[in-house]
């Protein structure tokens, strides 16, 4: 099973409600997967600065030490915002690589959830209601966000095995389904220099899209090429700094429903996830077609549907 939700706001006056709306959507999907839950929020941007969201199983000791090391490395230009087992380090964008190198030197005490100018990812083992309250997701504002509640099939129930997966700056992916060619694809992507944290199939899908976008494709084009290269069952919802995309495999047995109004585009595994959205009774509600790429981008006027 697994439950996935996504919300892309067109009406910026809803920004302050993003965390609340997305949390309610995700909690409604709890009975599709009780193993772990996660959420990616695209929030405020500060020019020239990036956020590195990290996680630790021993936050009390580890984050104090991390904050000291971060201060030593980056100096006054850094800050650390701690939220339960996660923390968001804000640093000048040019120093992100140094921070990652420092984290690599900590022998796994700290794991990187995401890196980006606007995106933060929070994910843990447990029910959606507990995960959203631990990280106070309801109070978060932002332009778009994606959530996932997991029923594990392809890898262990761990924090790193939870969705969303992020394999590139401000990029994330959630997946309902299972891929059958992920081992081969992982090998190929590793050869291209992609980095993997887990044995999870969905992480491979995320890395695949990251690699394609590195090649210069936009989100819509990367999703289109995924139809040729990914084998298995999938409904994906993906986010980039300014974009939001949906893709289903040609068989399309994993459920999906979308709604669009002047104010937002929303995705849910089931209609139940969408019933609390503003003015849902007058939204255009539809089931995304198999093998068809749907994406929206707030910068390019590139929002379109690509039928494969």
């Amino acid at each position: 099973m697994c439950g996935i939700v996504g919300l892309f706001l067109k009406d910026r006056s809803l920004d302050t409600n993003l965390g609340q709306l997305l949390s309610d959507m995700l909690v409604t999907m709890t009975d599709r997967g009780p193993d772990s839950a996660g959420i990616a929020i695209y929030g405020e941007e500060t020019a020239g600065r990036s956020k590195v969201t990290i996680q630790s199983d021993t936050p009390d000791v580890t984050f104090a030490d991390f904050e000291r090391r971060l201060g030593d490395l980056v100096g006054k230009g850094s800050s650390l915002r701690i939220k339960d087992t996660h923390a968001v380090a804000e640093v000048p964008t040019g120093r992100v690589a140094d921070v990652r190198a420092m984290i690599d030197g900590l022998d796994g005490a700290v794991r990187v959830m995401s890196v980006g100018e606007t995106m933060e990812i929070y994910k843990e083992v447990g029910l959606p209601k507990d995960v959203v309250s631990r990280f106070d997701i309801r109070s978060m504002s932002g332009t778009h966000g994606i959530g996932h509640t997991r029923m594990a099939t392809e890898s262990a129930v761990t924090t790193l095995g939870a969705h969303p997966f992020s394999t590139g700056a401000d990029q994330c992916l959630v997946h309902n389904g299972s891929l059958s060619n992920h081992n081969n694809l992982r090998r190929e992507l590793k050869r291209l220099g992609m980095r993997f944290e887990t044995q999870n199939d969905s992480e491979v899908a995320a890395a695949y899209l990251t690699a394609r976008m590195k090649d210069g494709l936009d989100l819509g084009e990367a999703l289109t090429s995924a139809l040729d290269d990914l084998d298995g069952f999938f409904t994906f919802v993906v986010g980039t700094k300014t974009g939001f995309g949906v893709l289903r495999d040609p068989i399309a047995c994993k459920p999906a429903v979308m709604a669009e109004t002047d104010q937002y585009v929303a995705f849910g595994s089931e209609f139940r996830a969408l019933v609390g959205l503003p003015n849902i009774d007058n939204a255009r509600v539809w089931e995304p077609e198999p093998s068809s790429v749907y994406f929206w981008d707030r910068e390019a006027s590139a929002s379109r549907t690509l039928a494969a």
Partner: peptide, 8 residues
Amino acid sequence: VIEGDASQ
């Protein structure tokens, strides 16, 4: 009778 759409 379903007055709207039906899923799979």
